[in-house]
């Protein structure tokens, strides 16, 4: 038991020993590079006067030519009774298509800046060995998603965008943060001290929206070599949505495919990183 606790505090230790630090953090580093790279692209304009991308995640224009728009925010606008421009709609279509193919919650693990905060909180929580966590349902986020779509219908204003920590943080970094850093701090503290993976794993309606969007996506992580699993538990510890792993990893005798075919898998690839037995890999829906 003691040993198990120690392991859970330092998941991936064996993988580091076996594969080396870089390989044991490969996807994590790639993800951080993408997340920060996106921010950097948006920041290059105002800071360095290099205008590659303008706007923010809600809507942007790349190289004066490629429009991208957040379908979730646009949907809120639609619910409030307002119809966007054609360019806005094209932007939405491109983004919808992209996430429908690569996995909706790829938004969470590869784009959303809050993910860096909540991952850090989860890491911190492990290091501090905090076990208490207030329990509430992971489906709360779908309730909130519903709420954020009904509110504009009632008030004819995009209410959620007055609160949404995701746009608050991203826009804040690019256009001026104001008091928004307090919100980010609050989410960090909430995840560390109140509820494990509380925000991204239970509450965030943005993540909930994208999970629905990409639940039949092509790119999927697969526990292809699940027979090699030595039950070290590391993947469960690092996974932001641990529930999604079990069926694929342990369902061999029930005839469940090794494909992690769950809307809430964020395709973050951390399970691939920390597994010293190389059980997981990126795969596609059509492979198995």
């Amino acid at each position: 038991m003691v040993k198990q606790t120690a392991r859970n505090q330092f998941p991936g230790q064996q993988a580091i020993e076996k594969k080396g630090w870089w390989l044991a953090h490969k996807w994590l580093i790639l993800r951080r590079m993408v997340q920060l790279g996106i921010l950097a692209l948006f920041l290059a304009g105002p800071l360095l006067d290099v205008w590659i991308v303008k706007g923010n995640l809600a809507s942007s224009l790349t190289l004066e030519f490629l429009p991208l728009s957040d379908p979730y925010v646009m949907l809120q606008g639609l619910m409030s009774g307002h119809f966007p421009t054609t360019e806005g709609l094209i932007g939405v279509a491109i983004v919808l298509l992209f996430y429908a193919l690569v996995g909706g919650r790829v938004y969470c693990s590869w784009v959303c800046p809050v993910n860096i905060v909540t991952d850090a909180a989860a890491w911190f929580r492990r290091k501090l060995g905090i076990k208490v966590s207030s329990q509430f349902s992971r489906s709360t986020r779908y309730w909130l998603l519903g709420l954020t779509l009904i509110l504009p219908l009632i008030t004819s204003a995009i209410v959620w965008e007055l609160f949404n920590p995701v746009s608050l943080m991203f826009r804040g970094i690019i256009f001026g943060i104001g008091w928004a850093w307090m919100v980010i701090l609050a989410i960090f503290a909430f995840d560390v001290f109140v509820s494990q993976r509380g925000w991204c794993g239970h509450l965030c309606p943005v993540g909930a929206f994208y999970s629905l969007l990409g639940h039949k996506s092509i790119v999927r992580v697969s526990a292809q070599k699940r027979e090699q699993c030595d039950d070290c538990n590391d993947c469960f510890v690092v996974c932001p949505e641990p529930k999604v792993i079990r069926p694929a990893l342990k369902g061999a005798d029930k005839g469940i495919s090794p494909l992690i075919d769950e809307a809430n898998c964020t395709n973050c690839g951390r399970c691939i990183d920390v597994c010293d037995e190389d059980v997981f890999n990126f795969s596609s829906r059509f492979k198995d």
Binding site: K54, S59, D70, M74, G77, G81, R171, F175, W179, A180
Partner: peptide, 26 residues
């Protein structure tokens, strides 16, 4: 308030840089 998605594209395309997006606390 039901139409603007707070993307800041208007801010960026103003050649005089006189628009801004409201920050939290304003």
């Amino acid at each position: 308030s039901g139409a603007c998605i707070r993307c800041g594209l208007c801010v960026r395309d103003c050649p005089y840089d006189m628009l801004r997006l409201a920050e939290l606390g304003e």
